[in-house]
């Protein structure tokens, strides 16, 4: 289980790096799907199988298909790869990479003295659903209203 955690984490990191360095947009999307599936495996090793399944279905399934449809509609063609290459040079990457590295160093510094280990206990669908339909039922309703608002505004925005 521990080996699976580190292996999936490494796959997630490598494929995310590939996403931000890739010029071909469809390849970047496939790498992003790989990254999300690796994070789903990490969820599974941390004892959250329900979250892992939802990550695979909703993120890697539904949201990525939405991206794929939009890329199809935009129909960027062959010139876009060269265009991407001219847009992302090493010089442009340098300053944001340094800034993010500073932020990352601060985050890791916060975690430095924090030493606890997780004894993985599987928290399954039953416990999560009992919470969702018990104390958090209002949050579920609000989430459904948010999704409805997203649906209506996406329809309105994408309409000709």
């Amino acid at each position: 289980m521990i080996i699976l955690f580190y292996l999936a984490g490494a796959v997630a990191l490598i494929s995310t790096v590939a996403v931000i360095l890739q010029s071909n947009i469809v390849h970047a999307l496939i790498y992003l799907i790989l990254s999300l599936l690796a994070v789903a495996v990490v969820f599974y090793t941390l004892g959250a199988p329900f979250a892992a399944v939802l990550e695979a279905i909703v993120y890697a399934g539904a949201i990525m298909v939405l991206f794929l449809f939009v890329i199809m509609m935009l129909n960027l063609g062959k010139f876009s790869v060269d265009q991407e290459k001219s847009w992302t040079s090493g010089r442009v990457m340098l300053v944001p990479a340094i800034m993010s590295a500073i932020l990352l160093a601060q985050l890791i510094n916060v975690l430095r003295n924090y030493e606890h280990s997780i004894d993985v206990v599987e928290v399954g669908v039953l416990e999560v659903s009992a919470l969702l339909f018990g104390p958090y039922v209002l949050a579920v309703e609000l989430a459904s209203i948010l999704l409805l608002a997203g649906l209506v505004s996406a329809y309105h925005l994408a309409k000709k």
Binding site: P96, L104, L111, R112, Y114
Partner: peptide, 27 residues
Amino acid sequence: MASIPVEHGLILAALLFALGLIGVLTR
């Protein structure tokens, strides 16, 4: 039973967050 250090999971989250931030800032 498996026991993973909690900070390794959080560091993985921080690394992914920083990579996403680099993507937002550079592309």
